[in-house]
Amino acid sequence: MEKVTATGVLNHLSLMEAQTRSSKDHRQQQQQSRVEELKAKVEELKRHRDQLKKEVEVYESVRTLRASMDSKSVHEEDERMDGDSENAEILWLMAKHCQVTDLLHAHRLIGGFEIIQTKQGKGLCVSVATSYEGVYLDRYSLEFDTKPTFRITRHNIPPFIPLNKLTEQSNMTETELKAFLHILSQHLNAYAGRKQQLQLVKEHHQSVEVMESNALCSLLVLLFTVPKKRTPVLCTMEYLDHIRCLPTRVYCQSEDTELPECPQWKSNCLLLMENPVHKALSTMKTMGHIV
């Protein structure tokens, strides 16, 4: 009986030793696999680092070359190109592309129009860009037939922009197209500005609740909360001049009927009329007038 027991114990110990050895080998394999995986990751990161270094070098070279282009004449640039290597020529082309892109962007920001002839001279395609505070926003397009009569055939102007009324007011013809595009651009940029202000209010002033707004962004109703007493104030902003980004009328309502008539809130209404709404709200928060 003792022999059987001893044999059983030895077998059990042998089994445990084998399991331990197997587990150790498995851990070693896992560690080795992990080491190889980490080495591969390190090599990948090194390659990525080297690639980023090259991209930074190219960017710095293009930026330096781009800055020097404004102070050099075309003749000087041509002379410089004659003696440069192929890589330098590629950098010069990249810098030139950046320069043209910057000029095109500036052209759009100051209200420039892109006009392309279509239908073998019988049509025009016009692109009107919008921007607000230096940020390039949406672009709208119109297609015109020039023959037999000058008319708009297709466009993606929002339906609440009075396009037909504007064409009548500007007496739109091919020779007077610029005047029509100018007034249309005023309407589109004002709308884009009001829309962008509303978006900025939602992003940066979450304590201010937008109760109502319309598609043209010509009506905006905001709910403020006055600190301490937590008094709610309903502020209505009307934009009756559709070629401006600022409201033409601002008035406030509250359960505390004396509050809208106090000098502080009259000053707030004036602030909202004279400044973009998101900036006015920042000032009101800084002054402690709203939460």
Rank of each mutant, 00 (worst) to 15 (best):
L198I: 02
T146L: 08
L181M: 09
V35D: 11
V250M: 02
A190K: 07
M1H: 09
E57R: 05
T5D: 03
S23C: 15
V128N: 09
Q169V: 07
Y59C: 09
K53W: 08
L200A: 02
M237F: 01
V9E: 05
H97N: 07
T146A: 11
L163S: 09
A280L: 00
R21C: 05
H204W: 06
K202R: 15
L13A: 04
Y191T: 00
Q19M: 05
K147W: 11
A106E: 06
L52G: 12
T20Q: 14
P148N: 07
I183F: 07
R34S: 04
L65E: 08
P159E: 06
T257S: 08
D70W: 03
D70Q: 04
S170I: 10
H97T: 03
H105K: 09
A190Q: 08
P263H: 14
L38R: 13
N189R: 13
V42E: 11
F224D: 13
L223Y: 08
V208M: 15
M287C: 12
H289P: 05
Q51L: 11
K202W: 00
Q32D: 11
L234T: 12
E36N: 14
Q206A: 03
D241W: 10
E203M: 01
V128Y: 07
L219N: 01
A67D: 11
F144N: 00
S14D: 01
S127Q: 07
G83V: 13
N171S: 14
D256G: 02
S22N: 15
E203N: 02
R249Q: 06
R244C: 10
M287K: 13
E258K: 14
D138H: 14
Q28F: 14
L104M: 09
V135N: 02
V128A: 06
L216M: 04
A215P: 01
T130M: 05
N11H: 04
D82Q: 11
A192K: 08
A190F: 06
A67P: 04
E79P: 09
P148K: 08
H75C: 12
L163N: 12
E43N: 15
V42L: 15
K178Y: 10
C252A: 10
H278V: 03
L223A: 15
A40H: 09
E57P: 02
V128E: 05
V277H: 02
A18N: 03
P276C: 06
E17L: 08
V210P: 07
L13K: 06
D84R: 04
S33H: 06
S71F: 03
E258W: 15
K202T: 13
V291D: 15
L109I: 06
H12W: 01
K24L: 11
C245P: 02
Q169E: 15
H107Y: 12
G193N: 04
M1D: 01
G112P: 02
Q199D: 03
A192M: 04
K195Q: 07
L10S: 07
Q31F: 04
